Computed example of a mutant assay.
Amino acid sequence: MQELAKIYGETLLLDKKFSYCPGCGHGIVTRLVAEAIEALGIRKRTVSVVGIGCGGFSHHYLNIDAIEAMHGRAPAVAVGYKVAKPENIVYTYQGDGDCSAIGLAELLHTANRGIPVTCFMINNNLFGMTGGQMSPSTLEGQVTSTTPNGRDVLQHGYPLRVPEMMADMHGAKYVARESVCDAKSIRKAASSVRKALDCQMKGLGFSFVEFIVPCPTGLKLSVPDSYKWNKEKMVEYFKPQIFKNEMEQNDEN
């Protein structure tokens, strides 16, 4: 970190070109996370644990410490780090494939355990980096490179709603789903990022935010059409909402 400081100073969001595809929702969420860290004044004690996939690049653009975890293991690594350095702020940044496919067990057990770490899941409803394959959140009937006839729920199961699975867990204190489909949604998403990190800062327990984002490349759509598709199709099934917020209860007490 000291060497980075010599090069970049106190800048948080680095002056680098994103490697994300044009129109990718990862760029928006990466910026929202950076803004929240800066607003909360926690840059020097924040660590990002990234998963495998497009989200694994997010720390390349932030002047913070980062750990690259094995596929799906980011929550487990985050817990280990938090136990060793409880005074620091640690968050995971993962795509829906990394987080809810191979990493679902780690995620749910982390939520249930209640250790104050924060997990951000960026849901573009497919495996973006490796060719647009079906992921747990691919919609019913959706065509992907591995479901050329559309997702068949009898064969592949139903799209997985992750925050609904953890909302009733005692260890989870802030659970939300947000979208970046338009300006109003982005403002709501920014609020949830700050609340999730603040939940950890107050030591209340586990916090989680899912972001519904477009993947123009994987969807094989233009950028405007991918955002329209997300707004009309994705948020119909994955409805943005606050599932659990014990921050307010804590403030009242």
Rank of each mutant, 00 (worst) to 15 (best):
K228V: 08
S137I: 00
Y8E: 00
A183V: 06
G131R: 12
M70G: 10
A176E: 09
D182Q: 02
E164T: 03
R187G: 01
G27D: 12
D251A: 15
E164K: 11
G171N: 15
H26E: 11
Q249I: 06
G132D: 11
F127R: 10
S226H: 04
V153P: 02
G132Y: 09
Y8N: 00
A111C: 08
A74S: 14
E252S: 07
L221T: 14
L108G: 00
R43Y: 01
Y237W: 07
G80A: 14
L62D: 09
N125K: 06
K220T: 08
S226D: 01
T30R: 12
S226T: 01
N124A: 04
G203F: 06
G205P: 09
H26S: 01
L108W: 03
F57T: 07
M165D: 00
E246K: 00
A69C: 10
D251V: 07
K220A: 10
K202F: 00
V79F: 13
Y20F: 15
S185N: 03
T147A: 08
N230Y: 06
I186G: 03
V77F: 12
A39L: 11
V49Q: 12
N63Q: 05
K85A: 07
H26G: 05
R151G: 06
G25T: 13
V83Y: 15
I64C: 10
D251N: 04
E210Y: 02
E236H: 12
Y20A: 12
Y174P: 02
S207Q: 10
Y93G: 06
S226Q: 03
D96F: 07
N112D: 04
K17A: 04
R187P: 00
G141F: 07
A34N: 09
L13A: 07
A167F: 11
S19L: 12
V79I: 15
I212E: 08
D152L: 02
N123G: 11
E164H: 04
V209D: 06
A105D: 15
V213T: 09
T30Y: 02
G205V: 09
K16N: 06
F57L: 13
T217D: 08
K173R: 14
R73E: 13
Q2W: 02
Y8H: 14
G55E: 14
C119E: 15
G41D: 01
L108P: 04
S179W: 05
G97C: 02
